[in-house]
Design a protein around this nucleic acid. Structure first.
Length: 377
DNA sequence: TCTGGGGTCCTAGGACCC
DNA sequence: TCTGGGGTCCTAGGACCC
């Protein structure tokens, strides 16, 4: 999709069309970054990932809308339902990117399918997308990105090398800031230059990534598009984090935030019918970035357990006073949830948690919550 | 106003087991 | 006499993506 979040907002709200629009990742304008921006905003030099205050500096008249992820998720799912009718091999790569393997159809048919998809998306959602058609996933992705918005780029096997020739290495998805710097330091700036380097040398320098770099610079990517229904993909981790307005020192307040995040993580685990063995706690502040994880023998989706586990991890941090600016709680080592009725108390606790979920689902989240989080809610 | 929040994958070292 | 080798699991941290 092109400028996905911003396009969705402009589609549902005619007042925003034709205007520079910034979709922020959180409710408040300050203290957040640009999650997406309209093409009108891009014209001012605004980019996603940029702090909002900086974006507003470039274009003070830009409209600011807080992100509404439920809306984007719904649109994304509806688009995928449309796309998967064209092939058994259809994959969701992210909220606004999909892969479709239509290689059996031949190139002519592939182009027709692409035009068809573009037209359907436009008529149903009033948003545009860019499509790349190529022999591999990574080349198709680069092709799609090369002509936005509303593009359709076809790259046949014979065109790939000339297409990649002058492409800066950082345009390849998977080559980020750090790898770019290392490559540039070796005087490697384009894919053609990368392709000339010996594979062995790249492996020596970059390990497993080296082999991938070597292949991708030659347009080689043998990864397959996933088959539909192929392993209902279960998340590997579930987490929430929060950046505070300013540093806090008060241990009680830090614990209240941890409790709040534990509640959010545990709720999502229960929604997905999962339990977690591993709890992660991270805190950034004056001590730098602290990130610790701990595996526990019994899996849980009980917010109280996650909170207590975080406290165990917190103990392992420097005992000195912690100054905290941002904090996060996440859960991994996920397994399907099993009701555990080993003791009466467990069963009572389960009933309590599930009753609370029902109340909050019916009357709104945080209708009932632990008193200990009242100061941060 | 002074840089978010949600994830995935990979690597390396230490602990531990047989 | 004076401590191997192979494997797995756990943890921390880096890089990357949208």
């Amino acid at each position: 999709m092109d400028a996905f979040f911003a396009s969705v907002e402009q589609a549902v709200n005619p007042r925003l069309r034709g205007k520079p629009l910034i979709v922020g990742s959180r409710g408040k304008r300050n203290h957040t970054v640009v999650a997406a921006c309209s093409y009108e905003a891009k014209a001012y030099g605004i980019k996603s990932g940029m702090p909002t205050f900086m974006a507003l500096g470039l274009c003070p008249c830009a409209e600011f809308i807080p992100a509404d992820s439920a809306k984007y998720m719904y649109t994304s799912e509806e688009i995928f339902k449309m796309i998967k009718d064209y092939s058994w091999q259809a994959e969701t790569a992210s909220i606004d990117e999909f892969y479709l393997d239509v290689s059996i159809c031949g190139l002519g048919k592939a182009i027709t399918i692409a035009q068809d998809i573009k037209q359907k998306i436009k008529s149903r959602f009033s948003i545009t997308c860019s499509i790349g058609i190529a022999p591999s996933k990574i080349i198709a992705k680069i092709a799609a990105k090369s002509k936005k918005p509303d593009g359709l780029v076809v790259l046949e096997e014979k065109d790939i090398m000339s297409f990649l020739k002058d492409l800066p290495v950082e345009k390849v998805p998977g080559i980020g800031e750090s790898t770019k710097k290392r490559l540039n330091y070796m005087s490697i700036f384009t894919c053609a230059e990368l392709a000339r380097v010996e594979t062995g040398f790249l492996i020596e320098r970059f390990g497993k990534i080296g082999l991938w770099l070597s292949e991708v610079s030659r347009g080689i990517d043998n990864s397959e598009v996933a088959y539909l229904n192929e392993g209902e993909t279960q998340p590997k981790s579930i987490g929430h984090s929060y950046t505070l307005e300013r540093q806090i020192y008060n241990r009680g307040l830090i614990l209240a935030w941890i409790r709040m995040l534990s509640e959010m993580v545990a709720y999502r685990l229960r929604k997905d019918c999962l339990q977690a063995h591993v709890t992660h706690l991270y805190i950034s502040g004056s001590l730098g970035f602290l990130n610790r994880q701990k595996k526990f023998s019994s899996p849980t989706y009980d917010p109280q357990d996650i909170y207590l586990r975080c406290q165990v991890i917190l103990e392992s941090f420097d005992k000195k006073q912690i100054h905290c600016r941002a904090l996060g709680v996440s859960a991994s080592g996920l397994v399907p949830a099993q009701p555990f009725h080993l003791f009466d108390q467990d069963e009572k606790r389960e009933r309590l948690i599930s009753a609370r979920d029902k109340i909050n689902e019916r009357f709104g989240e945080w209708t009932i919550y632990p008193a200990s989080i009242s100061e941060v809610k």
